[in-house]
Design a protein around this nucleic acid. Structure first.
Lengths: 143, 143
DNA sequence: TCTTGTTAGTTACAAAAGCAACTAACATCC
DNA sequence: GGATGTTAGTTGCTTTTGTAACTAACAAGA
């Protein structure tokens, strides 16, 4: 058998990664979608603000590797939901300080709880060592 | 510190998976995008036909877990590139047998080669054992 | 044969993402 | 101070995806 015959799709890592990422997203996305009408990017932005405090859109974009236009739209959506407030930064008026408002903080708590439950279920499924191993490898993959 | 403080984004698996999947796709996608003007779904459909022989759209959809509308559009795009041919199935006229034409087979060979190179680079980066471990865990995640 | 239900594949419309161009604010250099 | 370049964020337009409705073919039971 030649090379192309022996090359199984199930061994092609980008494909596996994509499948796994979509499958996991399908499992978790109902938490933010059904309950708060949020998109994935909105959930990620909310998470960053809740976890790391007030940030600018640029900082979120850099930290989370999300394109600035996606962040811009997510911020507007979260603002319309009254989940966050914007305040022009005094030292640089191009930039805006984003901060969660009480409903946003509440959503952050609920979703973070769901995320922890999700992780706990993952540990039950893969075991603690393998779960950690998976994360380590995924992190290593990003360099 | 309370729970929400201690929950790091970098430990949330769906986020890590998504980041890693996007990063790997950014690395590999130029192979099919720049050279053949293909989208990811087209590459996946091409791969299935090249690797597993003639299939129907439904079979590809099931095997690859790609929604039938995405498969339908990818098949049309590949047809327009003269990469595949359709033939109504004799035993069920709703279904179409899809088969690669010579240019499609050529693209399949080229891209499969690139995929093998990609995997080889991954093994150099993570090591053979860890690469296999990663794949095993990703597969296990999909149940 | 005539319902009733299911399946393969396509299409139409809406939602979302990607990309480039834009504005306004800053920074630097002369 | 004025020209030049850069940065934060937004907007407009195009491409791609998601969802639901649709057609045509099949299947099975009365």
């Amino acid at each position: 058998m030649d090379d192309s015959d022996s090359f199984e799709l199930s061994t092609f890592t980008p494909f596996l990664l994509n499948q796994a990422a979509e499958a996991q997203s399908d499992v978790f996305s109902p938490n933010y979608r059904d309950r708060y009408g949020m998109l994935r990017t909105e959930w990620r932005v909310l998470f960053h603000l809740g976890r790391y405090g007030n940030l600018s859109a640029k900082e979120i974009s850099d930290r989370a590797s999300i394109h600035k236009t996606k962040v811009s739209r997510a911020v507007r959506a979260l603002e319309e939901k009254r989940f966050l407030a914007r305040a022009t930064s005094p030292e640089d008026r191009r930039s805006e300080r984003l901060s969660l408002r009480p409903p946003g903080e509440e959503a952050f708590r609920v979703l973070t709880g769901a995320a922890q439950d999700y992780e706990a279920a993952l540990v039950r499924k893969l075991g603690r060592r393998d779960t950690q191993k998976l994360k380590d490898l995924l992190l290593k993959l990003q360099d």
